[in-house]
Every structure is written in structure tokens, then in C-alpha cells.
Design a binder for these strands. Structure first.
Lengths: 221, 221
DNA sequence: TAGATTGTTAATCGATTAACAATC
DNA sequence: TAGATTGTTAATCGATTAACAATC
């Protein structure tokens, strides 16, 4: 189990999500072909990806949904619950604090920080809001190793520095900026505009593709 | 300009974001090397990516920040403002409606829909909330070609169907589920848990990496 | 000019796919 | 058994990188 390509690691949560759904629907068995159909990833690739970690299927039958699900949870280390620190109690922080989707997938927001004295001391989703300056001391004390940045762009790097001082090893960054962090710290970025812009490339201009317009005539040369 | 690899398209918004920042900081000139340092993408790759679309730099000098920025905006079709329909006026929808980051990057939420009669008719971020059932007729009327799904998982596919009937060609989906859509419709997914799970893989278990533990002694064999 | 950096080529590297023996 | 599907190999495909002539 040495040095699995990062791109493979990034597909595992996709597989897990599909298996969660199947398990919840009461499905017992699946196959690389069925997963392929549901996910748009080739069945050969799914089998190859999984084969990095062991032999989880049975020839002629496929995969036991619950078994494979547990294996992936183990591999991804989400067969436990990770406490996370949320920094930023604005609209986005509020949405994340209330998000139901963490619960059964291995995560929980365990602490919330903000810089606004108006907010500090209040509660959000049942959690006491603390001042952001206390991040470096608070996190190690509580064994928190993951941070979420949901603050304005200008404050993001500063917050990242505080999280790093607090010993986090993984950061989920919602600010549209690349963070400078020590190389033992992982960062994943969520920027809706980046996603949108990669789609508008394909959309072309104006209503319904009127790009052919005024072309200098090359046909009658 | 035929058939640029999708992975190249997905990097262009990253370049643009960096150029936006440089432009705002008053920087006039940059180079593939500087971009490389800032983005963690090799300078050769940046030059190669850009070369798919034209020659934007000058040997010995580098790139004019503002010029390259305008070129990327043109290529990505964000030298205009795209109206978007937001479906779901819960916590996430609220955060998106208030998000300042769309404004100068080519996007605007122009309509908001929800299924809750309590919310319909009210305003959110200055926009009238309409009933989700009116999506198919409302969008074409207003020239909206992009939809954002911010509803509970169970409703996501149904909402996607309404958006498709409304003629959208791009969907940004926040629900943790893969959508079935016609192939002319593009979908990008935002699921924070997927991002988190791909980081916990690398975190290992428990506090501070105590994995070496109880190893059968191989040294004194 | 001398120094710097582009755009591009060819070589390298890595990921995906097709195919099939193994086997349930 | 016959049919199905895995795990894996080898071939293919595509993306990244190194290097450099062109040139500002």
C-alpha cells in the first residue's frame, strides 16, 4: 500500500458516496459495471483503483456493498468522527454550521471562531463562538486537526497561519485565494466561481450560440 | 482552437484568479515563472496551456497582466455577466445569495426559487423568492442559462429536471449526489465532504501519528 | 549587446483502457 | 455446468516536463 496516486485517492470518496446511497437503499451487492454506470467512471478504472488496496470483490458476483463501504471508510479514515474547527461565522459559516451532511460521513464541527466581538460569546448551531485569536491554543487542547476557512479573502491567509500554529494538518478553504502553508499541511479549495468559469468556457456567447455572424467571405475568393 | 483538453480549461480560471489579484495590486507585468511560484503549477505547463489559445507573452519580458487577464476573460466568456438561477433558499442558498465573490468574476444571481410557501413571496438579498415549479417557464423568459442547486439531496434530481426543462446548460450542484442530465448540460459538483475525505486519507489515525506501535520484533531475528 | 523569457518540440512520465485468465 | 465478474497485465493514450531556438 505504498504511494497510491493522488488522483486515485480523490476518487475513493466518490465511490464511498455511491455505496452509502446503495446501503441506505438496502442494496446488498453491486459490481464495477453498476458503479461505472452510476458514476461515469469506467469499470476497469474502478477495479484498478480498488485493487491498490486489496481484493474486495468476488468473481462472478461483484462486491458486497456493506463490506466495500466499510473498507473504504477504513482506508479513508472516516470510520471515526473528525472534529473540525470552523473559522468565520458569517453567512457561509452559518450554512456550514447547520449543514447536516457532515454527520454520517465522518465529520463534525466542534468549535467555531470569529473575529467580530459582536459574535464572540454567542451561539451558532448550539456551539459557543470563540475569538479567532484563541485558535492556536484551543485546537491542540481539543485534539482538532482539521480547519475550515470561511472568512473574507483578505483574512484567509492570516487565519490559515493561526490554524497551522494550532497544529491542523488539513484545511478546507472557501476563500478564493491560494494559501501558503507548510508542506505537511494539506489544503483543499472550494471556489464556486472557478467551477462556474470552467463551464462558461463551453457555453459560448449570447443566447443560443450566434457565433457564426459576420465572417469575411472566404468562399468566393 | 479545436478541442482543448478539459483539464486545461479547468486551470484557466485559476490563472485568471491570480491575474485578478495582481491587477488589483497594481502589478503590470508577470511571467510564467512567477505564476508558477504562486500557483504551484510548472511554468512549462502554464506556457503550454496558454499557447493553446494564442501568443500572449513577449520573450524576455513575460506577460502584460491586464492584457492576459482580458484574454482569459474572453476565452472563458466571463467578459460579460451571467445571470444565474438559485434554487433553494435555506442556509446555503442564503449564503450564496449574499456572496460578494460573484460580482466581479462574471456572475450574478438573478432569480431565487424555493418550494416552501413560507419563503415564496419573501425577499432574499433583495431578490423576490418564487416557487420552484415556475422554473421551467421563468428561465427562458429571462435568458437564464445557469442554475445553482442548493436543496436537500432528496430534491436535487427533481430540481435538476426542472432546470433542464427551463433550458439551462450549466448546473452548479451542491447536493452530494450525481445528477442525471442530458449530455448537452454541464454539471460541476461542490461537496465539502468529498474534499475532506480525500485529506483524511493522508492524516492517518489518532492523535499525532502513533501508527508505529506494537510491531512484532523483526530486528532481533 | 547580454539577459531574460516566451512558444514549441520531443522525450518522459503516468493514467486509462482493453482484454483475458482465474474463479466464484 | 454455464454465465458472470473480478483482479491484473500489457497496450494505448494523453498529459507533463525538459530543453532550446527564437526574440524581445
Amino acid at each position: 500500500m505504498k504511494n497510491i496516486p493522488d488522483i486515485v485517492i480523490h476518487r475513493l470518496p466518490i465511490y464511498l458516496r455511491a455505496l452509502d446511497l446503495m446501503a441506505r437503499a438496502g442494496q446488498d451487492i453491486t459490481s464495477s459495471q453498476e458503479l461505472s454506470d452510476r458514476l461515469g467512471i469506467s469499470s476497469a478504472q474502478i477495479r484498478k483503483d480498488l485493487s491498490h488496496f486489496g481484493e474486495f470483490g468476488k468473481q462472478g458476483t461483484g462486491y458486497d456493498v456493506e463490506f466495500l463501504r466499510q473498507q473504504l471508510r477504513r482506508i479513508l479514515h472516516v470510520d471515526r468522527v473528525w472534529d473540525m474547527a470552523l473559522v468565520g461565522a458569517g453567512d457561509l459559516g452559518r450554512a456550514l454550521a447547520h449543514y447536516r451532511g457532515f454527520k454520517n460521513r465522518g465529520f463534525r464541527i466542534a468549535a467555531i471562531f470569529d473575529v467580530d466581538p459582536e459574535k464572540v460569546g454567542k451561539e451558532l448551531a448550539g456551539i459557543h463562538i470563540e475569538h479567532v485569536s484563541t485558535v492556536p491554543e484551543a485546537l491542540p487542547k481539543r485534539g482538532i486537526r482539521i480547519g475550515i476557512i470561511a472568512v473574507p479573502t483578505e483574512a484567509a491567509q492570516e487565519v490559515a497561519d493561526l490554524l497551522v500554529r494550532g497544529g491542523v494538518q488539513a484545511i478546507l478553504n472557501y476563500a478564493p485565494i491560494r494559501l501558503a502553508v507548510p508542506e505537511h499541511v494539506r489544503v483543499e479549495y472550494i471556489d464556486p466561481v472557478i467551477a462556474l468559469q470552467s463551464m462558461t468556457y463551453y457555453l459560448g456567447n449570447e443566447g443560443g450560440e450566434s457565433k457564426t455572424a459576420i465572417q469575411p467571405n472566404e468562399c468566393s475568393s
